[in-house]
Design a protein around this nucleic acid. Structure first.
Lengths: 202, 202
DNA sequence: CTCACGTTTAACCAAATAGTTAAACTATAA
DNA sequence: TTATAGTTTAACTATTTGGTTAAACGTGAG
């Protein structure tokens, strides 16, 4: 089945916008990647901003619903964490450039992008409920005492950072992208083990 | 003491290049921030590339020597980790934009930047010696068994990610930059505790 | 066939941005 | 004081890049 022009544009634009960010992306580069004339981009999308908006929307949609859902899981703190870890790593493994894309664009403080992010955040279940549950379990002695915010940050760090840092990690460790992907396949189990041991009471 | 023009340029350029990246930075913006005419930039530095090179060099110099030194510390795996954690978090707390800067520019795959990074990596002590020591201690039963690469990645993740993710974390957790900085002050101790518990043998 | 409509192209324009130049300014040493 | 060298500025050019236009192309309906 031959790809429509619009599909080719979206595919190429997603590839390039997400991996290089808005500022570093050239419309010509997208046109080349989609094997079309640059004018076609403007035929289907009014401007670079418009096209970027479309890509942003599709990209965030790919990832945020799953992230939100992971936080809604029922159970103990450790069961919730396990679900978050599995969901995050699995999702990001399929879209490895997305976290850096989000962080890159957020750091530019482009208002339209920040609005888009905040819209998605609104659909998020309240984080502080999860933090409160952590405190309850810490008081009950089910898990070790530590600042709940830091525990949550630890979970995020262990899941997300490896994908953001892939290029530098491959350089410093002297391994290939392929070897790195192999590492990421076993990562969810390892992270869960790590956290389980770290938070169990003495 | 009145700042020299060159100092003003470097200060402004560092601020802007490091926080927004090469592609999103405008020479005019640097000139404005330094309160000088745009032509002055080209009087002191041949081109945007040249100025960027200078900023890159100074910025990496600020951070890489400390990172390298932290890996050279003597002692048990946990003692080494503790030193790495303390050094990394302390260093990055003073230069919070640097990690994202490095990752952003690396992801652009600009060859000159990658060369600059690899030069600094050359001065790094061999990571695999540290990994080998981990394996020794795991066999000896001093620390829990787990893939050494993942343990190292965990340490990096817990130290570096919070600074990269600051903008999105402040949004999702609904806290101010100031509150976030306060969190980062206590972070080194918390991360060390977390890792210590996670790697101790059962 | 041919008309009409959506699609595609080459050539072009306009705005933004990096980079240049020549003249003016300033401080300092002879 | 003035000659000199370094510094600064306004005005400019060149290049890159986002965006436009009018004409050409192709295809399905009548």
């Amino acid at each position: 089945m031959p790809e429509t022009t619009k599909e080719a544009i979206i595919k190429a634009a997603k590839e390039i916008f997400v991996s290089k960010g808005y500022a570093a992306t050239r419309m010509q580069e997208i046109a080349d990647a989609a094997n079309i004339n640059k004018a076609m981009l403007h035929y289907y999308y009014k401007s670079k901003e418009t096209l970027f908006q479309e890509i942003t929307s599709q990209t965030l949609e790919l990832v945020f619903p799953r992230f939100a859902q992971a936080l809604e899981h029922e159970g103990t703190v450790m069961e919730k964490i396990e679900n978050i870890v599995n969901t995050y790593i699995e999702t990001i493994r399929h879209h490895p450039y997305v976290p850096l894309f989000i962080i890159t664009e957020l750091s530019q403080k482009r208002t339209d992008f920040m609005v888009e992010i905040q819209k998605r955040m609104a659909g998020f279940p309240k984080l502080h409920l999860f933090l409160a549950q952590m405190e309850d379990e810490m008081k009950a002695g089910t898990i070790r005492k530590m600042p709940p915010m830091h525990l949550f940050l630890n979970v995020m760090s262990l899941c997300v950072f490896p994908f953001i840092a892939q290029p530098i990690y491959c350089t410093v460790a002297g391994i290939s992208e392929h070897q790195y992907e192999a590492m990421m396949q076993q990562r969810a189990d390892i992270v869960n083990d790590f956290i389980r041991k770290a938070i169990r009471p003495d």
